[in-house]
């Protein structure tokens, strides 16, 4: 019975084991003096510090500040990226006109313009949202574009044979057919928006996880810093998992092109 459970859930069992293994190894490596705790702290210290920061409310404050910027930037990116992507996917000329800018945006590390944003928007929240918005925009735009553009020809032709007008085809064939690809874009956008927020917070903020990491980093307080690092990683995994889940829910919409 146990063997069968192990066999079926091998991925889950081994994955959990390896996570536990890492934590245990981390603790032992420091306890035995193999690594100086100044550099990396220990899981038990981090846990204790997490409790402290949780109780004094700073975890809530930082997470709230980061999530606030995250939600705004992702929301804006989803809105703008989807609209631009739909326009570009439906009208080839719009795609041609946008392409050079998108390529530039894709290859330019947005952070390079950080000082420019600070000059225009000032330190803090608006700049953070702007940076994260630009981080998240590309995958959302690109996926919407490809989803609309690759509308299944057979379905479109079938719709036209029933007398559908272009707008009907867009709304009833192209758009629903693109939902799974758009969800995948949103999932990528989630990761990038979070990166954008945290990176921008590293450079200048009054609160937020990135801010806390830099702040304690400058004070060389590894344990306090680790709390926020662990939260960021957990947040990234959690948010992406939620989106992956939503993505699988839309999977049945996928148009199978018969390959």
């Amino acid at each position: 019975m146990i063997a069968e459970f192990f066999y079926r859930r091998q991925a889950l069992v081994l994955g959990t084991l390896s996570m536990i293994g890492i934590v245990v190894f981390w603790q032992i490596a420091v306890d035995t003096g193999f690594i100086n705790p100044f550099f990396i702290s220990t899981p038990s210290q981090v846990a204790a510090e997490f409790k402290v920061q949780f109780e004094d409310g700073s975890v809530a404050t930082n997470v709230a500040a980061t999530l606030y910027c995250f939600v705004w930037s992702l929301g804006l990116a989803a809105l703008v990226g989807t609209i631009l992507g739909m326009l570009a996917g439906w009208f080839a000329d719009v795609e041609s006109a946008l392409e050079p800018f998108i390529w530039f945006k894709y290859s330019a590390p947005t952070v390079a313009f950080y000082p420019l944003f600070v000059a225009g928007l000032g330190y803090g929240t608006p700049t953070i949202i702007a940076i994260a918005f630009l981080f998240a925009l590309t995958p959302i735009y690109a996926n919407t574009l490809s989803g609309i553009k690759n509308t299944d020809r057979d379905l479109a032709r079938a719709a036209r044979s029933f007398g559908a007008r272009p707008l009907d085809i867009f709304l009833r064939v192209a758009l629903p057919g693109s939902v799974p690809v758009m969800m995948a874009g949103l999932r990528l956008g989630v990761g990038r928006a979070l990166t954008g927020v945290v990176v921008a917070e590293l450079f200048g903020a009054n609160a937020g996880l990135g801010y806390a990491i830099t702040y304690y980093g400058q004070l060389m307080q590894t344990t306090k810093m680790m709390v926020s690092i662990v939260i960021v990683i957990a947040l990234g995994v959690l948010l992406t998992q939620i989106l992956s889940f939503l993505e699988t829910r839309t999977d049945s919409w996928r148009v199978d092109s018969g390959r």
Binding site: S18, F39, T195, L202, G217, Q218, T222, V232, V237
Partner: peptide
């Protein structure tokens, strides 16, 4: 199966948050 979960976590997570600790 053993290494995938931590690997995925680090792939998804913004690894740039490790920058301050790298500086230390």
């Amino acid at each position: 199966h053993l290494i995938d979960p931590p690997l995925m976590a680090l792939y998804i997570a913004p690894t740039l948050v490790l920058l301050p600790i790298m500086v230390i």
